[in-house]
Write a protein that binds this DNA or RNA. Structure first.
Lengths: 153, 153
DNA sequence: TATAGAATTGACGTAAACGTAAAAGGTGCG
DNA sequence: CGCACCTTTTACGTTTACGTCAATTCTATA
Protein backbone atom coordinates (compact mmCIF):
# COMPACT_ATOMS: atom_id res chain seq x y z
CA UNK A 1 0.00 0.00 0.00
CA UNK A 2 1.12 3.52 -0.68
CA UNK A 3 1.72 5.64 2.31
CA UNK A 4 2.87 9.15 2.61
CA UNK A 5 6.21 8.87 4.26
CA UNK A 6 6.45 10.92 7.44
CA UNK A 7 7.72 14.42 6.96
CA UNK A 8 6.73 14.80 3.35
CA UNK A 9 3.01 14.61 3.46
CA UNK A 10 2.42 17.23 0.84
CA UNK A 11 5.68 16.83 -0.99
CA UNK A 12 5.59 13.28 -2.18
CA UNK A 13 7.26 13.29 -5.52
CA UNK A 14 7.52 9.60 -6.11
CA UNK A 15 5.27 6.59 -5.67
CA UNK A 16 2.20 8.49 -6.72
CA UNK A 17 -0.86 6.32 -7.31
CA UNK A 18 -2.38 6.30 -10.75
CA UNK A 19 -5.57 8.00 -9.58
CA UNK A 20 -4.76 11.17 -7.72
CA UNK A 21 -6.63 11.40 -4.42
CA UNK A 22 -5.69 7.95 -3.24
CA UNK A 23 -3.64 9.38 -0.49
CA UNK A 24 -3.45 7.69 2.86
CA UNK A 25 -2.19 9.13 6.06
CA UNK A 26 -1.60 7.39 9.32
CA UNK A 27 -3.06 8.38 12.59
CA UNK A 28 -0.21 10.56 13.74
CA UNK A 29 -0.30 12.80 10.76
CA UNK A 30 -4.05 12.89 10.72
CA UNK A 31 -4.04 14.01 14.32
CA UNK A 32 -1.49 16.73 13.70
CA UNK A 33 -3.29 17.94 10.63
CA UNK A 34 -6.55 18.48 12.49
CA UNK A 35 -5.29 19.35 15.89
CA UNK A 36 -6.69 16.35 17.71
CA UNK A 37 -5.04 13.58 19.66
CA UNK A 38 -4.58 10.00 18.61
CA UNK A 39 -6.91 9.04 21.39
CA UNK A 40 -9.58 11.24 19.91
CA UNK A 41 -9.33 9.64 16.50
CA UNK A 42 -9.52 6.16 17.96
CA UNK A 43 -12.39 7.24 20.11
CA UNK A 44 -14.32 8.60 17.16
CA UNK A 45 -13.72 5.38 15.35
CA UNK A 46 -14.87 3.40 18.34
CA UNK A 47 -18.06 5.42 18.31
CA UNK A 48 -18.60 4.71 14.65
CA UNK A 49 -17.86 8.19 13.43
CA UNK A 50 -14.80 7.28 11.45
CA UNK A 51 -13.89 4.21 9.48
CA UNK A 52 -10.34 4.34 8.26
CA UNK A 53 -8.98 1.52 6.18
CA UNK A 54 -6.33 -0.73 7.56
CA UNK A 55 -2.96 -1.90 6.48
CA UNK A 56 -2.67 -4.82 8.81
CA UNK A 57 -3.46 -3.13 12.05
CA UNK A 58 -2.37 0.33 11.04
CA UNK A 59 -5.12 2.81 10.39
CA UNK A 60 -5.07 4.59 7.07
CA UNK A 61 -7.15 7.69 6.69
CA UNK A 62 -8.41 8.78 3.31
CA UNK A 63 -9.76 12.00 1.93
CA UNK A 64 -13.17 10.79 2.92
CA UNK A 65 -12.15 10.36 6.52
CA UNK A 66 -10.81 13.87 6.47
CA UNK A 67 -14.12 15.20 5.25
CA UNK A 68 -15.92 13.32 7.98
CA UNK A 69 -13.54 14.53 10.61
CA UNK A 70 -14.06 18.09 9.50
CA UNK A 71 -17.76 17.63 9.90
CA UNK A 72 -17.32 16.11 13.32
CA UNK A 73 -15.21 19.03 14.42
CA UNK A 74 -17.68 21.51 13.02
CA UNK A 75 -20.47 19.69 14.80
CA UNK A 76 -18.63 19.80 18.06
CA UNK A 77 -17.83 23.43 17.60
CA UNK A 78 -21.46 24.34 17.32
CA UNK A 79 -22.26 22.20 20.32
CA UNK A 80 -23.64 18.98 18.94
CA UNK A 81 -22.94 15.83 20.85
CA UNK A 82 -21.08 13.07 19.08
CA UNK A 83 -24.29 11.09 19.14
CA UNK A 84 -26.04 13.78 17.18
CA UNK A 85 -23.21 14.05 14.73
CA UNK A 86 -23.25 10.33 14.21
CA UNK A 87 -26.98 10.28 13.72
CA UNK A 88 -26.71 12.87 11.02
CA UNK A 89 -23.74 11.32 9.30
CA UNK A 90 -25.29 7.90 9.35
CA UNK A 91 -28.00 9.15 7.07
CA UNK A 92 -25.61 10.04 4.35
CA UNK A 93 -26.19 8.20 1.11
CA UNK A 94 -23.76 9.01 -1.68
CA UNK A 95 -26.27 7.88 -4.29
CA UNK A 96 -29.27 9.90 -3.21
CA UNK A 97 -30.46 13.43 -2.69
CA UNK A 98 -30.02 13.07 1.06
CA UNK A 99 -33.19 14.91 1.73
CA UNK A 100 -33.73 13.01 4.93
CA UNK A 101 -30.26 13.74 6.15
CA UNK A 102 -30.57 17.39 5.38
CA UNK A 103 -33.92 17.63 7.04
CA UNK A 104 -32.64 15.94 10.15
CA UNK A 105 -29.62 18.20 10.20
CA UNK A 106 -31.79 21.24 9.83
CA UNK A 107 -34.11 20.08 12.56
CA UNK A 108 -31.32 19.38 14.95
CA UNK A 109 -29.67 22.62 14.03
CA UNK A 110 -32.74 24.64 14.84
CA UNK A 111 -32.95 23.06 18.25
CA UNK A 112 -29.27 23.51 18.83
CA UNK A 113 -29.49 27.12 17.79
CA UNK A 114 -32.24 27.64 20.33
CA UNK A 115 -30.10 26.02 23.00
CA UNK A 116 -27.18 28.20 22.13
CA UNK A 117 -29.27 31.31 22.30
CA UNK A 118 -30.62 30.28 25.67
CA UNK A 119 -27.11 29.61 26.84
CA UNK A 120 -25.99 32.97 25.67
CA UNK A 121 -28.81 34.59 27.57
CA UNK A 122 -27.86 32.69 30.71
CA UNK A 123 -24.27 33.73 30.35
CA UNK A 124 -25.19 37.33 29.85
CA UNK A 125 -27.34 37.09 32.93
CA UNK A 126 -24.44 35.66 34.83
CA UNK A 127 -22.14 38.34 33.56
CA UNK A 128 -24.50 41.01 34.77
CA UNK A 129 -25.01 39.46 38.18
CA UNK A 130 -21.34 38.93 38.60
CA UNK A 131 -20.54 42.47 37.57
CA UNK A 132 -23.01 43.78 40.07
CA UNK A 133 -21.57 41.66 42.84
CA UNK A 134 -18.13 42.85 41.98
CA UNK A 135 -19.22 46.42 42.25
CA UNK A 136 -20.62 45.74 45.68
CA UNK A 137 -17.48 43.95 46.80
CA UNK A 138 -15.29 46.75 45.53
CA UNK A 139 -17.37 49.24 47.43
CA UNK A 140 -17.02 47.18 50.58
CA UNK A 141 -13.30 47.02 50.12
CA UNK A 142 -12.81 50.72 49.65
CA UNK A 143 -15.03 51.56 52.59
CA UNK A 144 -12.97 49.43 54.92
CA UNK A 145 -15.45 49.34 57.75
CA UNK A 146 -18.35 47.14 56.90
CA UNK A 147 -17.90 43.86 58.80
CA UNK A 148 -21.35 42.41 58.50
CA UNK A 149 -22.43 43.50 55.13
CA UNK A 150 -24.87 41.52 53.09
CA UNK A 151 -22.58 39.42 50.98
CA UNK A 152 -20.59 37.30 53.37
CA UNK A 153 -21.37 33.84 54.56
CA UNK B 1 -36.58 22.63 70.06
CA UNK B 2 -39.00 24.86 68.31
CA UNK B 3 -39.95 23.95 64.84
CA UNK B 4 -42.22 25.54 62.38
CA UNK B 5 -45.02 23.07 61.97
CA UNK B 6 -45.42 21.93 58.40
CA UNK B 7 -47.70 24.06 56.31
CA UNK B 8 -47.48 27.20 58.35
CA UNK B 9 -43.93 28.27 57.91
CA UNK B 10 -44.66 31.93 57.81
CA UNK B 11 -47.86 31.84 59.83
CA UNK B 12 -46.77 30.41 63.13
CA UNK B 13 -48.90 32.09 65.72
CA UNK B 14 -47.93 30.08 68.75
CA UNK B 15 -44.74 28.69 70.21
CA UNK B 16 -42.76 31.72 69.15
CA UNK B 17 -39.27 31.87 70.62
CA UNK B 18 -38.35 34.80 72.82
CA UNK B 19 -35.86 36.14 70.36
CA UNK B 20 -37.38 36.57 66.96
CA UNK B 21 -35.22 35.06 64.21
CA UNK B 22 -34.72 31.77 65.99
CA UNK B 23 -36.73 30.02 63.37
CA UNK B 24 -35.84 26.53 62.27
CA UNK B 25 -37.02 24.78 59.19
CA UNK B 26 -36.49 21.21 58.19
CA UNK B 27 -34.98 20.04 55.02
CA UNK B 28 -38.20 19.65 53.07
CA UNK B 29 -39.31 23.18 53.59
CA UNK B 30 -35.85 24.53 53.03
CA UNK B 31 -35.69 22.71 49.72
CA UNK B 32 -39.06 23.98 48.61
CA UNK B 33 -38.25 27.51 49.65
CA UNK B 34 -35.14 27.67 47.52
CA UNK B 35 -36.09 25.39 44.70
CA UNK B 36 -33.51 22.73 45.34
CA UNK B 37 -33.81 19.06 46.13
CA UNK B 38 -33.22 17.36 49.44
CA UNK B 39 -30.29 15.63 47.86
CA UNK B 40 -28.77 18.95 46.99
CA UNK B 41 -28.99 20.24 50.53
CA UNK B 42 -27.43 17.10 51.91
CA UNK B 43 -24.80 17.24 49.25
CA UNK B 44 -23.90 20.81 50.07
CA UNK B 45 -23.64 19.85 53.71
CA UNK B 46 -21.45 16.92 52.86
CA UNK B 47 -19.19 19.28 50.98
CA UNK B 48 -18.97 21.58 53.97
CA UNK B 49 -21.02 24.38 52.48
CA UNK B 50 -23.86 24.16 54.94
CA UNK B 51 -23.97 23.30 58.59
CA UNK B 52 -27.50 23.01 59.87
CA UNK B 53 -28.12 22.23 63.49
CA UNK B 54 -29.65 18.97 64.48
CA UNK B 55 -32.55 17.82 66.55
CA UNK B 56 -31.44 14.27 67.02
CA UNK B 57 -30.82 13.32 63.45
CA UNK B 58 -33.15 15.83 61.88
CA UNK B 59 -31.52 18.79 60.19
CA UNK B 60 -32.67 22.21 61.28
CA UNK B 61 -31.83 25.13 59.06
CA UNK B 62 -31.52 28.61 60.48
CA UNK B 63 -31.54 32.08 59.02
CA UNK B 64 -27.82 31.77 58.69
CA UNK B 65 -28.10 28.62 56.60
CA UNK B 66 -30.51 30.42 54.37
CA UNK B 67 -28.07 33.23 53.82
CA UNK B 68 -25.36 30.78 52.99
CA UNK B 69 -27.59 28.87 50.62
CA UNK B 70 -28.47 32.08 48.85
CA UNK B 71 -24.80 32.75 48.35
CA UNK B 72 -24.19 29.26 47.08
CA UNK B 73 -26.97 29.61 44.58
CA UNK B 74 -25.72 32.97 43.46
CA UNK B 75 -22.26 31.54 43.09
CA UNK B 76 -23.50 28.70 40.99
CA UNK B 77 -25.56 31.03 38.90
CA UNK B 78 -22.52 33.03 37.93
CA UNK B 79 -20.64 29.85 37.23
CA UNK B 80 -18.47 29.26 40.25
CA UNK B 81 -17.75 25.72 41.23
CA UNK B 82 -18.83 24.59 44.64
CA UNK B 83 -15.17 24.39 45.54
CA UNK B 84 -14.72 28.04 44.77
CA UNK B 85 -17.80 28.96 46.70
CA UNK B 86 -16.59 27.01 49.66
CA UNK B 87 -13.17 28.58 49.51
CA UNK B 88 -14.69 32.00 49.62
CA UNK B 89 -17.20 31.24 52.32
CA UNK B 90 -14.59 29.57 54.47
CA UNK B 91 -12.82 32.86 54.80
CA UNK B 92 -15.75 34.53 56.42
CA UNK B 93 -15.06 35.84 59.89
CA UNK B 94 -18.00 37.51 61.60
CA UNK B 95 -15.65 39.45 63.85
CA UNK B 96 -13.39 40.99 61.26
CA UNK B 97 -13.43 43.24 58.24
CA UNK B 98 -13.16 40.23 55.92
CA UNK B 99 -10.73 42.01 53.72
CA UNK B 100 -9.11 38.76 52.75
CA UNK B 101 -12.41 37.19 51.88
CA UNK B 102 -13.46 40.13 49.80
CA UNK B 103 -10.16 40.24 47.97
CA UNK B 104 -10.35 36.55 47.19
CA UNK B 105 -13.90 36.93 46.02
CA UNK B 106 -12.97 39.82 43.81
CA UNK B 107 -10.03 37.97 42.39
CA UNK B 108 -12.03 34.88 41.63
CA UNK B 109 -14.79 37.03 40.22
CA UNK B 110 -12.50 38.74 37.79
CA UNK B 111 -11.26 35.44 36.52
CA UNK B 112 -14.74 34.07 36.30
CA UNK B 113 -15.91 37.14 34.46
CA UNK B 114 -13.16 36.60 31.93
CA UNK B 115 -14.21 32.99 31.53
CA UNK B 116 -17.81 33.99 31.02
CA UNK B 117 -16.88 36.51 28.39
CA UNK B 118 -14.79 33.97 26.60
CA UNK B 119 -17.65 31.52 26.74
CA UNK B 120 -20.00 34.08 25.37
CA UNK B 121 -17.63 34.71 22.49
CA UNK B 122 -17.42 31.00 21.78
CA UNK B 123 -21.16 30.70 21.82
CA UNK B 124 -21.59 33.60 19.51
CA UNK B 125 -19.08 32.02 17.21
CA UNK B 126 -21.01 28.80 17.34
CA UNK B 127 -24.25 30.60 16.66
CA UNK B 128 -22.77 32.21 13.60
CA UNK B 129 -21.28 29.02 12.24
CA UNK B 130 -24.45 27.14 12.86
CA UNK B 131 -26.55 29.82 11.20
CA UNK B 132 -24.32 29.73 8.17
CA UNK B 133 -24.54 25.96 7.96
CA UNK B 134 -28.28 26.16 8.22
CA UNK B 135 -28.42 28.57 5.36
CA UNK B 136 -26.40 26.20 3.25
CA UNK B 137 -28.55 23.24 4.18
CA UNK B 138 -31.72 25.16 3.43
CA UNK B 139 -30.34 26.06 0.05
CA UNK B 140 -29.52 22.44 -0.64
CA UNK B 141 -33.00 21.41 0.34
CA UNK B 142 -34.77 23.90 -1.88
CA UNK B 143 -32.58 23.11 -4.84
CA UNK B 144 -33.42 19.44 -4.69
CA UNK B 145 -30.65 18.23 -6.93
CA UNK B 146 -27.35 18.40 -5.17
CA UNK B 147 -26.36 14.88 -4.17
CA UNK B 148 -22.71 15.36 -3.43
CA UNK B 149 -22.58 18.80 -2.05
CA UNK B 150 -19.95 19.84 0.40
CA UNK B 151 -21.69 19.23 3.65
CA UNK B 152 -22.48 15.56 3.79
CA UNK B 153 -20.39 12.86 5.30
C1' DT C 1 21.70 -4.47 15.16
C1' DA C 2 20.34 -1.25 18.41
C1' DT C 3 17.44 2.28 19.42
C1' DA C 4 14.05 5.56 18.83
C1' DG C 5 9.65 6.65 17.09
C1' DA C 6 4.92 5.16 15.61
C1' DA C 7 1.31 2.26 16.12
C1' DT C 8 -1.92 -1.20 18.36
C1' DT C 9 -5.57 -2.88 21.95
C1' DG C 10 -7.40 -2.80 26.55
C1' DA C 11 -9.03 -0.81 30.36
C1' DC C 12 -9.37 2.13 34.28
C1' DG C 13 -9.63 7.26 35.56
C1' DT C 14 -11.65 12.06 35.47
C1' DA C 15 -14.65 15.96 36.29
C1' DA C 16 -19.41 18.05 38.66
C1' DA C 17 -23.28 17.91 40.84
C1' DC C 18 -26.20 15.69 42.05
C1' DG C 19 -30.00 11.29 40.86
C1' DT C 20 -31.76 7.28 42.54
C1' DA C 21 -32.65 3.42 44.98
C1' DA C 22 -32.62 0.84 49.53
C1' DA C 23 -33.75 0.06 54.12
C1' DA C 24 -35.22 2.03 58.08
C1' DG C 25 -36.75 5.33 61.90
C1' DG C 26 -39.87 9.04 63.56
C1' DT C 27 -44.52 11.64 63.74
C1' DG C 28 -49.12 13.31 63.41
C1' DC C 29 -53.75 12.09 62.60
C1' DG C 30 -58.25 9.84 61.98
C1' DC D 1 -53.66 1.08 65.35
C1' DG D 2 -52.33 1.92 60.84
C1' DC D 3 -51.16 4.71 57.12
C1' DA D 4 -49.17 8.51 54.91
C1' DC D 5 -45.44 11.49 54.96
C1' DC D 6 -41.00 13.20 56.29
C1' DT D 7 -36.51 12.16 57.38
C1' DT D 8 -32.09 9.56 57.87
C1' DT D 9 -27.63 7.16 56.09
C1' DT D 10 -25.15 4.56 52.63
C1' DA D 11 -23.64 3.96 48.32
C1' DC D 12 -23.67 3.08 43.50
C1' DG D 13 -25.13 5.39 38.95
C1' DT D 14 -25.20 9.16 35.46
C1' DT D 15 -23.26 12.09 31.71
C1' DT D 16 -19.44 13.21 27.87
C1' DA D 17 -15.34 13.08 25.67
C1' DC D 18 -11.72 11.85 25.99
C1' DG D 19 -6.78 11.29 29.35
C1' DT D 20 -3.56 8.21 30.90
C1' DC D 21 -1.14 4.32 31.61
C1' DA D 22 0.36 -0.54 30.26
C1' DA D 23 2.18 -3.98 27.54
C1' DT D 24 3.34 -5.02 23.07
C1' DT D 25 4.47 -4.82 18.15
C1' DC D 26 6.09 -2.76 13.90
C1' DT D 27 8.96 0.16 11.21
C1' DA D 28 12.61 3.21 9.95
C1' DT D 29 16.97 4.86 10.47
C1' DA D 30 21.78 5.32 12.08
Amino acid sequence: MKLVSPGEAAANSNDIPAEAGEEFVRIGEMAKKYGVTLRTLRFYEDKGLLNPKRDGSTRLYTRRDKARLKLILLGRKVGFSLRDVKQMMDLYDPTGSNTKQLRLALDKSEKQLARLQKQRALIEDAINELSNSMTVVRRMLTERAAPQASAAG
